[in-house]
């Protein structure tokens, strides 16, 4: 790993640019390696592989993906990301910056983010969408490896559509979070929490209705052409089952945006 100065963590930014014709920019850096995993058709696919699976305290890593007008891109990852403690006690920062141009479509489907004991990760995801862009975005946070207490995890997802705010959600858990995060208003003892966001201009004409998905998950239409699934589960496997189920149901009413 690059040791820029004593005590400093890794600094790395990976960049992806997708156009209808290809991927003119596919640039990993440091521990962030990118692989083109499907080159056929108009729908490009990139998999994030490698040691990004472990941001340590003090690291500052970032991924930028730009989907230009009319392009279609899926980004997934080869493995879960595990936040681990660093040597300095400093937090790690992980920034994700996504943009989708007119008529473009992005499926952002990374594996889970696992907050290991003693870690401290600040994750910031910003998405800028054109008015007619489409997005499927999944986030899953797991509090601790099996049977482990979680570290401190603070995430924020901010989505703008046509320059206006569409969704802004911050979550904070673990010993460094404000009180009450494990109480019955926030997590209620669940150890896995996930969100699936779907933005599609077609939802303006045929909005979905709010519905419960079991006892601890809900699908809610946002105040724009989008819906959000918010799910809580005891563990990562059960959480993924809920989000996969809604992905399957979604294929029925929105075939264009089927997950994967």
């Amino acid at each position: 790993m690059d040791g820029l100065s004593l005590g400093a963590g890794v600094r790395a930014t990976a960049r992806i640019v997708a156009t209808p014709d290809g991927l003119p920019v596919l640039a990993g850096e440091g521990p962030l390696a990118l692989r083109r995993t499907r080159a056929t058709g108009e729908h490009h696919r990139v998999t994030v592989v490698g040691a990004m699976s472990a941001p340590l305290g003090g690291d500052r890593i970032a991924i930028e993906a730009e989907v230009r007008d009319g392009a279609r891109l899926t980004v997934d990852s080869a493995a879960a990301t595990i936040a681990l403690p660093g040597r300095t006690g400093e937090p790690a920062h992980y920034d994700v910056r996504l943009s989708v141009g007119s008529g473009g479509e992005l499926h952002w489907l990374p594996e889970q983010l696992i907050s290991a004991r003693g870690s401290d990760l600040r994750m910031r995801t910003r998405v800028e969408l054109a008015a007619d862009a489409r997005l499927v975005l999944r986030e899953e946070q797991i509090l601790g490896r099996h049977g482990e207490e979680p570290g401190t995890l603070a995430t924020r997802l901010t989505v703008h559509r046509a320059g206006r705010p569409l969704l802004d959600q911050a979550l904070a858990y673990g010993p460094g979070a404000p009180g009450g995060w494990n109480g019955s208003a926030v997590l209620g003892g669940h150890r896995a929490v996930g969100q699936l966001l779907v933005v599609d201009p077609e939802l303006a004409d045929k909005p979905v209705e709010a519905r419960l998905l079991g006892e601890s998950a809900v699908l809610t239409p946002l105040a724009g052409p989008a819906f959000l699934v918010t799910a809580l589960a005891p563990d990562a496997r059960l959480l993924r089952r809920v989000l996969d189920d809604i992905g399957t149901a979604q294929r029925d009413f929105m075939p264009r945006l089927s997950v994967r």
């Binding site: 924020r156 901010t158 705010p165 802004d168 959600q169 911050a170 979550l171 904070a172 404000p178 019955s184 208003a185 926030v186 997590l187 209620g188 929490v193 709010a210 519905r211 419960l212 006892e215 601890s216 998950a217 809900v218 809610t220 918010t230 799910a231 809580l232």
Partner: peptide, 22 residues
């Protein structure tokens, strides 16, 4: 700008609010 305002969310409150409304 307004992105500087906090956005802290409570997943269970959202789930329970929709259940309660029904």
């Amino acid at each position: 700008g307004l992105d500087a305002l906090p956005a802290a969310s409570a997943p269970l409150l959202d789930v329970m609010a929709e259940a309660h409304a029904a």
